[in-house]
Amino acid sequence: MKRLQGRVALVTGGLRGIGGATVDRLLDEGAVVIIADLKPASDEVVQATLQRLGQASSYVQLNVTSEADWQSAAETVRRDFGRLDILVGNAGIDGVGSVDTMPYETWKRVMAVNIDGLFLGTKYFAPLMTETGAKTRGGASIINISSIMGMVGWVDASPYNASKGAARLFTKATALEFARKGIPIRVNSVHPGFIRTPLLQEGMDRAAEDPSVGATAQDMLATLDQGTPIGRIGEASEIAAGIAFLASDDASFMTGSELVIDGGWTAQ
């Protein structure tokens, strides 16, 4: 598939998990892709990733909670590429525990990464994406990664639920705002169900350390497979395919929409 030839994309949290799979997919579709993540550019993981992905990939160090980092990234992308067609707001963290014992710091940290990061990215890249969007049939495309946890509640996940619900409606608000003002940027959210990613594995490993849980990470992952109607959790590449669709001109009338990709979990 080469629907994105000549396009430039930036993916936050692009070094691993859904972000990493998205980088791979957008490159396959012909885009030039900027990976944004926390590690310094000199880090060996970053260097190895760029080596593997080749010339169409590049890297910018970006903490999505830092306004200065976003400003600087927007300047760098304008200077080095002169356009941005696709912004994938993927960087995210979880935050689990009972609300009554949840440290306020945890709440603020989850909000900062999962929703402030989307606000700052949209704010600082909107001017460049407005210019870029006028050059293509389908316009520029912002894709915010929410979650099925942005649609339905989950026990002991209040900050994550709240931040992902915020991502869902921030998406609709900005989609409406841009459309109403004739700004050629489409904005949509993607809502993965349980996906085999490092974030999920780490969450399960952490939960398994609690003796009262009485289950191994392996057991818990098997439970998630069984709880998904189609009988298995998803792969990161299956989310990346939805993101590539939204990024492409195939989705030219799609804005303010939510793509639930969850193996039927929330249809139950």
Partner: peptide
Amino acid sequence: GLVAFLSSDEAAFISGSEYVIDGASTAG
């Protein structure tokens, strides 16, 4: 394009979903 995507094996993890494609008509 949306019908083609959902028809393809790329959408193997998508079932029971309802995808709005309305130029933000119902987003607000």
